[in-house]
Simulated assay, not measured.
Amino acid sequence: MSHLLPMNSGTDSRFTMQFIATQDGQLLREALQEWSISKRALTSIKFGGGLLTVNGIEQNVRYPLSQGDLVTVKFPLEERSEGLVVEHGNLEIVYEDEALLILNKPPYQSTIPSREHPTKSVANFVCGYFQQQNVASTVHIVTRLDRDTSGLLCIAKHAHIHHLTGLAQRKRDISRQYEAIVHGHLAQDYQTIQMPIGRKESSIIEREVRADGQFAHTDVTVLQRFWLEDEPMTYVRLKLHTGRTHQIRVHMAFIGHPLVGDELYGGSRQHIGRQALHCVSLEMMQPLTKQALHVTSRLADDIQRLLL
């Protein structure tokens, strides 16, 4: 398999990828599958204004390829999701290329609009940024953060990129690390928590460890044990191997050390007005170039103050 980087030519702003065939007689459909073009994308290309060409000539998916053929895939133009209002606001961009946008999200900002917070979300502001940059895309969230969690958040610039990052997540090829302050002094310097998480029956928001939940795996490393106004606290680094809703918050509460500020799961807001949780590191392969990508973020100021 061989592929080239995305390219756009002239006034055609459709997201375009090019591949070089490596086998004689392979059907275009089979080659596209090897190149991780999803069936959903092929349907969208066929009926939504996309285009498949081999050596510049339009072909259907039953076309037999020859080694060295240049296959061009033009994806249809994307439309912004209904109800996603374009807004312009501050985005702290940590990394950007033709496929990805990685931001440092502040606390108290939603990743996507909700009934309670319909505007000023990351997604609203990214729509405005894409409009300014003439990026023909809607917002595809790769790694979401809770409203009160700060730190690194990854966005794909196209549905196909989102598909590729989804495949990487399922193979656990995207690694995220967080830092947090929790109540109490953890006894062990390192521990791994593998407990299933599911929705609590009495709540539409709260999760809990439960036997019929989804597998969830968190590694916990102690960075510092300290006291704040006679209260024991521990500064920890957490590595997510899975991405369940509220995973870190649920796992830490389950072992008796809820996050400071996390009232939903037993924490106190005496010293901070939100859960003391920040995504400090994101490691992944760039989905097109396959180059290793490692992005970091400094711990948010309100959490830093707890350590002073």
Score class of each variant (00 low, 15 high):
Leu152Tyr: 06
Val209Cys: 10
Ile272Lys: 00
Tyr235Trp: 15
Leu153His: 04
Phe215Glu: 15
Gln191Trp: 10
Tyr178Ser: 05
Glu201Gln: 11
Gly198Val: 01
Asp219Cys: 13
Val250Lys: 00
Lys200Asn: 15
Thr242Asn: 10
Leu152Phe: 09
Val220Tyr: 07
Gln177Val: 10
Asp219Phe: 05
Tyr178Met: 05
Asp189Ala: 09
Ile181Phe: 01
Asp230Gly: 11
Tyr265Asp: 04
Gly273Leu: 01
Ser202Val: 06
Tyr265Trp: 03
Glu201Trp: 00
Tyr235Met: 07
Arg269His: 03
Ile193Cys: 08
Arg249Gly: 01
Glu283Val: 04
Ala168Glu: 09
His241Pro: 09
His162Ile: 09
Leu223Arg: 13
Gln191Glu: 14
Gln194Ala: 13
Met252Cys: 07
Thr242Arg: 04
Arg244Leu: 09
Arg274Ile: 00
Thr218Ile: 03
Val250Ser: 00
Ser175Glu: 15
His160Lys: 14
His241Ser: 09
Val236Tyr: 02
Ile204Met: 11
Glu179His: 09
Ala187Ile: 13
Asp219Tyr: 01
Ala253Phe: 01
Glu208Arg: 13
Pro258His: 04
Tyr190Leu: 09
Phe254Asn: 15
Leu153Ile: 12
Val222His: 10
Asp262Lys: 00
Ile155His: 03
Thr234His: 07
Asp262Ser: 03
Ala159Ile: 14
Ser281Tyr: 12
Gln188Val: 12
Glu201Ala: 06
His217Asn: 12
Ser175Tyr: 11
Ile161Cys: 10
Gly256Met: 07
Arg249Ser: 04
Arg170Val: 12
Phe254Gly: 08
Ser203Val: 11
Ala253Ser: 14
Asp189Arg: 12
Leu153Trp: 08
Ser175Trp: 13
Val209Asn: 03
Glu283Ser: 13
His162Glu: 12
Asp262Glu: 08
Tyr235Asn: 09
Pro196Arg: 06
His251Gln: 11
Ile181Pro: 00
His217Ile: 12
Leu277Met: 04
Trp227Lys: 15
Ile193Thr: 05
Pro196Ser: 05
Val250Trp: 01
Gly198Pro: 02
Leu259Pro: 01
Ala187Val: 13
Gln191Cys: 15
Glu231Asn: 15
Thr221Ser: 13
Tyr235Glu: 06
Ser203Leu: 10
Gly166Tyr: 03
Gln214Thr: 04
Ala156Pro: 01
Gly184Met: 06
Ile204Thr: 14
Pro196Trp: 05
Ile255Pro: 03
Leu277Asn: 01
Leu152Gln: 06
